[in-house]
Computed example of a mutant assay.
Amino acid sequence: MAPELVVLLLVMGVVAIPGAGAGARAGSHSYWYFYTGVSDPSLDVPAFTAVGYMDDQKILHYDSETRRQEPCGNWAQGAVGPDFCDNETRSLQGWQQEFGVNLGTLRQCYNQTDESHTLQFMYGFELHEDGSTGGYMQFGSDGEDFISYDLGTRTWIAVPAQAQITQRRWNEDKILFQIARAYLEESCIKWLQKYLQHGKAALLSKPPKTQVSDRPSSQDVLTTLSCRVHCFYPKEVAVVWLKNGEAQPQEMSHSGVIPSGDGTYQTWATININPSSNHDYTCSMEHVSLGEHLQAARDKSMMRE
């Protein structure tokens, strides 16, 4: 995050943002930040949180409880200078304060009650496989779009009627244009390239490992075969149980793909079978790191009489 963006928030006055950040497509890379402020914080939800991502890997984190910017992972630390965290901490403390002020401003703008409300800001940059680039800077409130910067037309575009006054003011402000344009067209790509240089190992494809096991099903007469697929990156993976070589997607359950906590991902696929069945059951998976489908067969010695 550049210090100029703190200036951007301070000058804007009312700010807000939309949904989730964009992940990188195959062969491309993305670098983005997502800030969230809430009017009614709790033990699990700080008043202000800022996170930075390189592709789907978290590289930076700050929240109003710790009040300090911390890099996530050794490779992220290698990309920044010794004073980076101190400078970022001071900047984000300023963001935290302004978010509190702007939550009150938005409440008046929308004539909101004292219910819990959310203020968000997202910005980032994408480098595509063909060398083309794209940047975005978006604001929203309570999960709804408020206003965004269009890099193609280099104009601010309002979504609700309440944002039209802000849109006109920002489109007439040359300083805001210079800040947004300079960051999205120059600074952002430099940071992305810097993190790519130091994070190559973390962003390399990692092949999945598998483990097949069985356990009694909640239905006494059946056994649940479980296929655990783990230690893979990136997160896109396809897992299916085969019965005598035929896929059984309708018969199986899938846990979804979740982070393992070390930059890799894991998932489970299960299927209920008759424990005395003599059919061949195989867990088959497809991942970008594999030249062909990886398969792990059920051990028939696990059969119960």
Rank of each mutant, 00 (worst) to 15 (best):
K209E: 15
L225S: 02
P160D: 05
H128Q: 04
E185C: 06
T210G: 13
D145W: 09
K174T: 15
L242G: 04
R181T: 11
E236F: 08
I165H: 13
G245N: 04
P160A: 07
F121T: 05
G140T: 06
D142Q: 03
L119M: 03
E129W: 02
D142R: 01
K243W: 03
P234N: 06
G152L: 13
V239D: 06
A161N: 09
Y233E: 01
Y233R: 07
G135I: 02
Y149I: 08
L127H: 03
P216R: 14
A182D: 13
L203K: 00
Q162G: 06
V237S: 02
T133W: 02
D142H: 01
E144A: 12
E186V: 15
A182G: 10
S187L: 13
R215A: 13
T166G: 11
W156F: 12
S217Q: 08
G134M: 04
V237C: 05
W241F: 06
R154D: 13
L204N: 05
S226P: 03
W170I: 07
Q138C: 12
H230W: 09
Y183L: 05
L203C: 06
K200G: 00
I157E: 11
K235S: 15
D214F: 11
E186C: 10
R181M: 07
I175L: 15
F139Y: 09
Q197R: 07
E172A: 11
G131E: 01
Y149W: 15
G140R: 00
S226R: 13
I147V: 10
F139T: 13
K190C: 11
S132K: 04
K206F: 05
L196I: 03
Q120L: 06
A158T: 08
K174A: 15
F232C: 04
K194R: 13
L242R: 09
R154I: 03
T210K: 11
G199T: 03
E129D: 10
E129N: 04
S213G: 12
A238I: 10
Y149N: 05
V237M: 07
T166F: 10
R181C: 09
Q211K: 13
I157N: 09
W241P: 00
R154S: 14
G245W: 02
V159A: 14
Y149G: 03
F232D: 01
L127K: 00
Q120V: 08
F177N: 12
L204M: 14
R228Q: 12
R169N: 13
A158K: 08
N244K: 08
P160V: 06
S141F: 11
G134C: 06
D145N: 12
I157W: 01
T118M: 01
W241G: 06
N171K: 05
